[in-house]
Nucleic acid binder design. Structure first.
Length: 325
RNA sequence: GGGUCGGUACCGAAGUGGUCAAACGGGGCAGACUGUAAAUCUGCUGGGGCAACCCUACGAAGGUUCGAACCCUUCCCGACCCA
């Protein structure tokens, strides 16, 4: 893929887009390890694309990679923000928000673009690693989020309206969108209204795409469902043994029970246990099942993207990356 | 050995003569989703044709009845109680 830069009057210069690699797949499919393998093979730096590991303090329940905050090798010249060094590979995008902060795709897009610029300046390969499909799409397909930021005041106001009332307003002003949103899907109804009232335009009219910024290779980690589910179950047991309950207790003490980060799988179930609403055993089972569902949703999301090259392991990932680079 | 309560689809659990292939929940499967996305939401779920319909089904075997998951008999299994 190339972008065309008009220089002077008639000279068109074909400038290749910088290449980035994205490693995608469901939770517990082994993305972290593959990301590290790729980074080592191609002199890369990892940017996590994960809506939960962005939060400081959510460590055990997010299976966040462990490492040290430091500047290694030729990173020394840029000390503004330190990446997490995991097995010698810089990881960005981890611990960039507080658990009670509201973070969203738009913020991620801006952050990741900035980090990628730095990586490219260092002549390293940016390797996006994560399971949050929307975040990855934000980087590759360039949806433009600038027009309508969330409006807390409006959301408070909308809280008094029923779903049917929200739907009626949408149906009147933006029937196309109305037909694509289920009336029970409160969250999407509210966002649609937010856009309508802020711009007077339909959802479709506000959804804009910028030009591609990168040439991306997406590598998907394919893993058999049964196998994936057992890996998830094992990982959940390890999280519990590793102190998830204490982690959640501390987070609640510090940030309250309603912090945005508490909505993540693992956190909300343990939170219920701490409230005395469930037995630990049942909370653990719940975490496992909810993680299964989550993994399924991720697969549904990624399956739809035909650009993704599916591989089974680090070896396959390195081979396809090799050809791409 | 005696007694009581139970055995329902992958699991839990309703149903107590026809409108029951059987509510509901879980699980499983499939899907939607551009500013909360590990979020939010939807559909399917005995088998076959995938509509009509047919077959197999409510522990097992008989029986009553026009008709039984639902009533009766015996048997098997489980829980609890008395011995």
């Amino acid at each position: 893929m190339v972008i065309q830069c008009r220089i002077g009057r008639n000279h068109i210069l074909h400038m290749p887009l910088p290449k980035i690699i994205a490693v995608v797949g469901p939770t517990a499919s082994g993305k972290t390890a593959v990301g590290i393998a790729l980074a080592r093979a191609f002199d890369g730096e990892v940017i996590a694309a994960d809506s939960r590991t962005i939060y400081r303090g959510l460590d055990i329940g997010t299976a966040k990679p462990t490492g040290e905050r430091m500047l290694g090798g030729d990173l020394k010249e840029m000390a503004a923000e330190k990446p997490l060094m995991v097995e010698g590979v810089p990881h960005w995008g981890i611990d960039i928000a507080d658990p009670d902060e509201v973070f969203s795709v738009a913020g991620y897009q801006a952050y990741a673009d900035k980090v990628i610029d730095g990586i490219l300046r260092r002549s390293h390969v940016p390797i996006i690693v994560g399971g949050t499909g929307l975040y990855i799409r934000a980087l590759i397909d360039r949806p433009n989020f600038t027009e309508v930021p969330p409006n807390d005041a409006l959301r408070v106001e909308l809280a008094t309206l029923s779903n049917a009332e929200l739907m009626a307003e949408i149906a009147e002003r933006d029937p196309d969108t109305a037909s694509t949103i289920d009336e029970d899907n409160r969250r999407r109804l509210e966002r649609a209204i937010e856009i309508l009232r802020a711009t007077g335009k339909t959802l479709a009219e506000t959804q804009k795409f910028d030009k591609p910024r990168y040439e991306a290779l997406q590598i998907g980690l394919e893993i058999e469902r049964d196998n994936l589910y057992s890996r998830i179950d094992e990982r959940v047991d390890v999280m519990i043994a590793g102190g998830l309950v204490d982690e959640v207790r501390e987070l609640r003490n510090k940030y309250g029970n309603n912090a945005t980060a508490m909505t993540g799988i693992g956190y909300r179930q343990v939170s219920e246990f701490l409230d005395g609403k469930t037995k630990l055993k049942d909370a653990v089972t719940r975490i496992k099942f909810d993680s299964h569902h989550y993994a399924k949703r991720q697969e549904t999301w990624f399956k739809r993207d035909e650009r993704i090259v599916w591989v089974h392991d680090a070896k396959g990932a390195i081979e396809t990356a090799q050809k791409f680079l």
